[in-house]
Design a protein around this nucleic acid. Structure first.
Length: 788
DNA sequence: ACCGGTGCTCTCTAT
DNA sequence: GAGCACCGGT
């Protein structure tokens, strides 16, 4: 009886992967091959075999993937529990979480014991904005120019280093830190780290780097982890970077070919992934991790899941041919026994507006088929900037849509301010947050005053908050009486809030709603709410709404914060961790910290909720792991996909191709690829070239849309299309009084003189501008204003 | 101290 | 086309 449900409906390779529980296992899971099914069944199987769930750790990249996996395992084991529907079913202690949340948890639990330099268990996590602020400060401290050392690119260099497990010292000693540029970078890196530690903060990359180092250097922590988790599963393994690779390897223990001591127990590591879907090399992911898995774990088993259960034959055929162009991969045949289906449609559009209209029409047609609902459709694009025109078109046609940008809400100004206050409450050392909120709304603590206090703080080796407190009390640096009063009020306000959340009191089961109450109090007493209420614009009103929403989100978090439900810190774990710190239970402060952590670690992909009955708009990166009945991919142009920044680099070009592959393979039944002849980027309209990826698609699986504005030889076009295309060509602006010698104004290029005109289908004018010389402009797009 | 305007830069993907 | 730094007025 046991196990019957677990293996039902599985193909032989799938069942084999489920059954293989001991030793290292690599599952090469092509798109739509039932990967999640295999993973969840495998976990359920382990439990049914008698492995205690708390010995199993599954790691993913997004909260959503983790939540889905957990849910499906609970469902599987819930019924297998034999009618004892006790809370959590047979999954008590099972940990399914993301890399970042796992690291945060391990660091909070062990950083104190392991003596990880500079941080304790209460650290805050800095997001990209916070990183930039801190980094700019570091660059200024070193008296370097932010023009020569743009924070954006310096940050990416530091991030690269961290992902390769190079801390500031190691970076300085590495070849990259050798020349002048490298030495300066190393100095900035070190200064930046100093800032992070002073603020008791870690950035996203630190979470991974510090955890890897901690596991590597502290035997007792490593052993504690190995004692706890005997079965490790890593999803999307092709996207792991060096730090994540090390963490997985250190947790797995056992015998590895490179760099690890033998462990008493076998290496029960199971990694699942697909090299063809590796799309995160730019943030350090190393496709070699999956390609070389077998070498690193001798005796490992490899199971390839190539059969696709998601898409039609035409879609799979197109995807398979495209990805074969790549050289750095592990070949596996993609095949499906699904119906042939419709051919992949390609549409060449005039411009992005035509493209958007075409996509909207196409989706309306799918809806009218009666087979697909809005929620079954999605639009993918390479860059977020491309979503705008689509959004406008959707709004104009009243089609419900959602953008998968989970982080957008938390990046709004008002929300960032409110969270800034909360972070100062949780951690007064957090100087980035302190700096953000100290004078918002304006309360008379201006730059001059802050400058003085900062100087004093530096000289006296005190933190900013402490310096403010001293100043208000008349013991710090002298400031004007007005400023001193304002500072005093600010410090007192924070102190009151902190007093509301005494460490270690008010447990989860204690005062209900205390976190939400705190958030509400902060929003109100800080004056944030009043500030936006005083505004008259729609934006201000929206901001008040958003602040109210933040209170609700805190309440929601608080209510769902039940034992085992939180991947970051379950109740048992919280108590366990508290014991190390000598605290009885997770207080409201702990709850606040968990909430702030949660809020920082949300991902865009987490926001995808098909229940909403709306078309989903998202980047190709966010689309991985999802599927839709109908998919439209826009902007298949050279410079967009593949992106212009990778044009010359073969390895990066392959990644762009994989990105295209990921997009195509999300589609179950219908797929539309569009390319635009003209596209306006940063206000400049330019002629484009159709993406090479379209040319690489096999003609037998592809047809040109009859809505296409341009037709090309060699394309299979369905009937009735002849002549249609010309109707859609741009309406000529005529040579509307434009002739050589006339002066015109262009919104970007300024004033220029017409030096040539071409009439016909797409009337153009050559205009000489003072600064940039002669430009050929298509009159239908150029918005030229006649001056004479 | 604060606020609004201008002019400049730099454009991807994201936990 | 947006976000940021700088500047000048209130």
């Amino acid at each position: 009886m046991q196990g019957e449900g677990i293996f039902s409906g599985l193909t032989e390779p799938q069942a084999e992967a489920v059954r293989h529980t001991e030793g290292a296992l690599l599952v090469l899971a092509g798109p739509g091959s039932g990967k999640t099914r295999v993973i969840t069944r495998r976990i359920a199987y382990l439990v049914e075999c008698g492995i205690p769930p708390w010995q199993i750790l599954a790691v993913t990249f997004t909260n959503k993937a983790a939540a889905e996996m957990r849910e499906r395992v609970v469902k599987l084991l819930g019924s297998a529990d034999g009618g004892t529907p006790q809370k959590g079913g047979g999954t008590r202690g099972l940990l399914v979480t993301t890399f970042h949340a796992l690291c945060a948890r391990l660091l909070r639990k062990y950083a104190g014991i392991a003596g990880v330099p500079g941080i304790d268990g209460n650290f805050v996590i800095y997001d990209t904005d916070d990183q930039m602020t801190l980094l700019k400060r570091a660059i200024e401290t070193l008296e370097l120019s932010t023009t020569n050392w743009p924070a954006r690119s310096v940050l990416s260099k530091i991030s690269d280093a961290k992902n390769k497990l190079l801390d500031a010292q190691a970076f300085a000693a590495s070849p990259a830190g050798g020349d002048f540029y490298g030495r300066t970078l190393a100095k900035i890196y070190a200064e930046y780290q100093k800032g992070l530690r002073a603020a008791d903060a870690v950035d996203f990359d630190d979470l991974l780097l510090l955890t890897a180092k901690m596991l590597e250097q502290h035997t007792e922590v490593r052993e504690a982890c190995r004692d706890r988790w005997h079965y490790l599963l890593v999803d999307e393994y092709q996207d792991t970077n060096k730090a994540q690779f090390e963490i997985a390897a250190l947790l797995a223990g056992g015998e590895r070919a490179a760099g690890g001591e033998a462990n008493a127990r076998p290496t029960n590591i199971c990694v699942v992934g697909d090299p063809d879907q590796s799309i995160y090399a730019w943030r350090g992911a190393d496709i070699g991790n999956i390609l070389d898995f077998e070498d690193l774990y001798p005796g490992s088993r490899v199971i390839a899941l190539g059969e696709n259960f998601r898409s039609t034959q035409h879609i799979i055929g197109a995807a398979d041919r495209l990805i074969r162009k790549n050289t750095r991969r592990k070949h596996k045949d993609l095949f499906t026994s699904n119906p042939v289906g419709d051919k992949v449609e390609v549409a060449i559009c005039r411009d992005e507006h035509h493209e958007a209209a075409l996509v909207v029409d196409w989706m309306k047609a799918r809806k009218q088929d009666g087979t697909l609902n809005w929620k079954d459709m999605a639009v993918f694009y390479r860059t977020n900037a491309l979503s705008r025109v689509i959004e406008d078109a959707m709004r104009a046609e009243a089609i419900p849509y959602v953008i998968a940008r989970g982080t957008a809400y938390y990046q709004r100004e008002e929300v960032k301010h409110a969270l800034g206050y909360l972070r100062v409450v949780a951690n007064p050392l957090d100087e980035v947050s302190l700096g953000r909120v100290v004078n918002v709304p304006a309360r008379g603590i201006g730059d001059t005053t802050l400058g003085k206090i900062e100087l004093w703080a530096g000289e006296n080796g005190s933190g900013m908050f402490e310096a403010l407190r001293q100043s208000a009390a008349g013991r710090g640096v002298a400031v004007g009486p007005k400023a001193a009063g304002a500072i005093g009020k600010f410090v007192a306000m924070i102190d009151v809030w902190r007093g509301l959340v005494p460490e270690g009191e008010l447990g989860v089961g204690g005062v209900k709603g205390s976190l939400a109450e705190l958030v509400e109090k902060v929003v109100r007493d800080s004056g944030l709410e009043a500030m936006y209420k005083a505004g008259r614009t729609d934006t201000d009103e929206e901001r008040v709404q958003n602040l109210a929403e933040l209170v609700s989100s805190a309440r929601e978090f608080e209510e769902m914060y039940e034992p085992g439900s939180d991947p970051v810190l379950s109740k048992e774990e919280g108590i366990e961790a508290s014991r190390h710190r000598g605290i009885e239970a997770v207080g409201t402060m702990g709850l606040l910290r968990a909430y702030l952590e949660r809020v920082t670690l949300v991902s865009d992909a987490d926001a995808v909720d098909p229940a909403q009955g709306a078309v989903t708009l998202m980047t190709l990166h966010a689309a991985k792991g999802l599927e839709f009945g109908a998919v439209a991919m826009i902007g298949l142009e050279e410079g967009v996909l593949p992106h212009s920044r990778v044009a010359s680099n073969p390895a990066e070009l392959e990644e762009e191709r994989r990105l295209c592959f990921v997009g195509i393979t999300r589609a179950m039944r219908r797929l539309l690829l569009t390319s635009s002849r003209y596209r306006t980027v940063r206000g400049i309209t330019e002629r484009t070239m159709t993406s090479r990826f379209i040319d690489e698609l096999p003609r037998e699986h592809v047809q040109l849309s009859d809505q296409s504005a341009w037709q090309e030889a060699g394309w299979d076009v369905p009937g009735r299309a002849e002549g249609r295309s010309t109707d859609l060509r741009p309406v000529s602006a005529e040579v509307k009084g434009l002739r050589v010698g006339i002066r015109v104004r262009h919104p970007q290029f300024g004033i220029g003189e017409v030096v040539g005109v071409t009439g016909g289908g797409d009337a153009r004018a050559q205009v000489r501008f003072r600064d940039i010389g002669i430009k050929t402009l298509v009159l239908a797009y150029a918005r030229l204003e006649k001056l004479d």
